[in-house]
Design a protein around this nucleic acid. Sequence first.
DNA 1: CAAAACCTTACGGAAATCCGTAAGGTCTTA
DNA 2: TAAGACCTTACGGATTTCCGTAAGGTTTTG
Lengths: 221, 221
Amino acid sequence: MFSKVLISDDLGSINQGVRTVLDGLGITNVTQVQYCDDAYLKIKSAYQNAEPFHLLITDLSFKSDHRAQRYASGEDLVKQLKQEYPDLKVIVYSVEDRLQKVRTLIQTHKADAYVCKGRNGLKEIDAAINTVYGGGIYISQQVEHALSSNSNLEINDYDIELLQQLSNGLSQDEISNFLKSNAIAPSSLSSVEKHLNKLRIQFKANNAIHLVAIVKDLGLI
Amino acid sequence: MFSKVLISDDLGSINQGVRTVLDGLGITNVTQVQYCDDAYLKIKSAYQNAEPFHLLITDLSFKSDHRAQRYASGEDLVKQLKQEYPDLKVIVYSVEDRLQKVRTLIQTHKADAYVCKGRNGLKEIDAAINTVYGGGIYISQQVEHALSSNSNLEINDYDIELLQQLSNGLSQDEISNFLKSNAIAPSSLSSVEKHLNKLRIQFKANNAIHLVAIVKDLGLI
DNA sequence: CAAAACCTTACGGAAATCCGTAAGGTCTTA
DNA sequence: TAAGACCTTACGGATTTCCGTAAGGTTTTG
C-alpha cells in the first residue's frame, strides 16, 4: 500500500474525512495542504530529498484569497505534476461531475482516479486508493460513462474556443479575425459559421444564444 | 446559546467539521441529516413533540440520487421552513458565492446567515452562530456587499423572464408572442428589444449572446 | 494515381438583431 | 387639469446571423 500521501483541499473539514479513510488503510504518513502551490512545493522538495510522495489526493476548485497562486486550480496542478513526475499517482476528489472535466483530467492530464464528492465519497476514495495502488484507473460510477460512451466526444478544443469567444461577446466576424491573428486555422468567417452551425445541430440549439446557454449548463465553457 | 441544532449537508465529512465547531460552543444536542427531506421531517416532528430545533445549518446543493426528494435544494428547504417556522434560525453554509443567491436567501427567504464554504468557513460558522443567536444577521465577508451595495437590484421578474426565454432559444419575435399568449405586458417586439437593450447596457454586454453568458455566470438564470 | 470524401472558403439571400427616431398612451406632480 | 416624465409601440435602416450553393484544396481510400 502507499506509505506517503499528500492531501490537497482548501476545505479543512474534507481533509479530515479523507484522513480517516487513510487511517483505516494503515497509511499514517499523511500531509495536508490548503493551496495548490503548497502541494506542488511539498511534492517537489520531497522528491529532491529522495523521499517522494506516492499519492496525491486533490480537489479541483480552490477559493482564491489574498495569496497569489501559480496554480489556481487542481487541474493546473495535476497537469504540471503528471508531466514532471509521471510515477506519482493522483486521485482527483471533486464535487465537479461534468463529463468533459473528467475526460480532460483522466485522458489528457493522466490522473489515475476521479472521485465525485458525495454521500459515498469517502467509500469511493477507499476503493479508488486500492484500485490506483493496483495500477488501475478508478472513476466514480456517476461519471464513469464519461470515457466509454460514444457521447459528445467529437467536440474539440477548436470548438470550445469558438464557444468561448462567442460567450465573450465577439461577433462571428470578430471571432474570424481573432483566429487569424492567433494563427488558428480555419479562420474564415464562413468556417466559423459552419462550425457553429454544426455545434448548433449537435446540441439541438435554435440559435447561437441557445447554444451558449446549453454548453454553459453542460460546463463545457 | 442554542441547545438543539440540526445540520443538513450531503457530504458527511463537512458535517464533521461543523460538529466540531458546535462542540467548541458547548452544543451537544446535534442531529445530522444528508437529505433535505429528512431535515424537513426532523424539524416538523421535533416541533410537534414540543422539542423544536433552534437552529438549522444547511448546505444549498444536494447531489440527487435514487431517492426521490420533495425538496431538491437547500433553498427550497429554507423557503418552506421559514414560512412554517419563522422562529427557527437558519444558517446557510454553501460554496455558492453568487450575490443573487445570497440576496434571495436572506431577503426573500429570510435566512439568518449566509456563510461561504472556504478556508475560513468553520471560523465563520462560529461567528455566524454567535451573531444569529444574538438576533443578528451574518453574511460572509466575500459576499457581504450582496445586500448593501446599490448593485443590480433593479432588474425585475420581467427582465428575468426575458433572459430566461432568450436562453431557452426563443427569438425576440417568439418571446413577444410568448408574452402575448401569457398576457404579460409589455409584449410587443419593440418592447422586448428595448428591455433587452437596457439589460445589455446594464451588464456591459456586446450582444444578446454575451448578455446570456453574463447573467448565467451571475446565476440570475 | 485517381476517385471519393472531406474541409475550407466565398458568395448571396432570407431572417433576425441592433439601434435610432417618432407617435401615442399612462402616470405623476404642481 | 395641464405639463412633464416615462413607457409602449411602430417603423426603417444598418449590421449580423442563418442557411443554402458552389468552387477549390486536402486527405483518405481503393
